[in-house]
Amino acid sequence: MNCINAGKEFQINCRGKLLDLSSGPKIMGILNTTPDSFFDGGTFHKTQGKVDLDRALEHALEMIREGASIIDIGGESSRPGAEKISVREEIMRTIPLIELLQRKTDIIISIDTWKAEVAEKAFKAGAHMVNDISGFTFDGDLPGVCSQYRAAAVLMHTPVKPESMQWSTDTGSGKGDILARVSCFLEQSIAVAEKNSIHDLIIDPGFGFGKSVEENFQLLAGLRSLQALKRPILAGLSRKSFLGHAITPKGEEILPPSERLTATITADTIALMNGASILRVHDVEAAAQCLRVLEAMKRF
């Protein structure tokens, strides 16, 4: 079964598991096994940099109980300026957890990577989709691997690799309309996927990735325009720095990620009202409450 577009309703086949978006938006819970992610870096690490599998598994199960439909497992930080790690290290941080999680639950598991070798190991371990921040632009072998394993894919817009990226700033990029640039990029990513017979696709505009504060808000306000690409939209807004800029009093140091939850839920609500089908979040229970409020409104 391929991606089915029934008006605004989508169904995504994730290696035999159906992500049914026809009944309403879904939540992707973030599970970073990295020591340096911008919000939860090091949370699931023991001494000497080893992943605490028991603690990471319990957090995944907690997110599922709170309402997550997908668990997104990442082993390399994509924050601006993040240090690159080896494929071997990324595999060590993610694959044991994927193997453990797929034995304990039937949740859809996503591997957050742009590397074909990591993705293949993840699929062999039981992952169902890849979440590629590069939209199939960093590793030319990744589309072939996804096609081979019949995996679904999240294609995100990013203009540069994380090590060359900056945090969202008040300075615009000067490269024209952000919505047009993102749409053009994602259209090309979709074309690459379809050329490789990958049709179960989700698109992500890449909030916070190489974009100014102003551009991020332009994307949020105009998110509905991306529905023209006829793919479900994922919004990854959770505790991003551009939200910190918006809520910080003028002249003060930007509020840290730990103080951006309310701003995140506000942005999530706007994204859902502007056509998002999936929220990628750190705080699943808060996002689930947001979904329930919007669902209650539909009765009136």
Results as ranks from 00 to 15, higher is better:
N216Q: 08
N5V: 07
C146L: 15
V281I: 01
E285I: 14
V130N: 15
S238R: 00
D268F: 12
T158D: 00
D268S: 15
G210N: 05
L101M: 11
I27W: 07
C3R: 08
R103N: 15
M63N: 14
R79N: 07
L179Y: 00
G206F: 00
F123A: 09
V281C: 01
T262R: 09
R150N: 10
E76R: 10
F10D: 15
M92R: 10
L279R: 08
A228P: 01
K84T: 13
T269Y: 15
P143L: 04
D40W: 10
T94F: 07
A119L: 04
E99I: 03
L272I: 00
K84M: 11
A271W: 07
V118D: 07
S110G: 02
E214H: 13
K211H: 08
R224E: 09
F44Q: 12
K175D: 11
L261Y: 05
K124W: 14
P159N: 12
E253F: 09
I111H: 09
R181L: 07
S183F: 10
M129S: 04
I178N: 09
N216I: 00
A276P: 01
M297K: 06
G210R: 01
V281P: 05
T94I: 04
P257L: 12
A263E: 01
E117C: 04
E90H: 04
F217L: 04
L255S: 11
P96E: 08
I4P: 15
S277T: 02
T137C: 04
G210E: 00
Q11D: 04
L237F: 01
L155Y: 04
L97I: 06
Q289S: 09
E99Y: 09
A228D: 12
F123I: 00
I202C: 13
G222E: 05
I233Y: 15
I71T: 08
G210C: 06
G208D: 01
A151V: 02
S197C: 11
M273V: 06
E117V: 00
C146E: 01
I27F: 14
R280E: 04
L255A: 11
G29M: 01
L21N: 10
I107C: 13
D283H: 11
F39L: 15
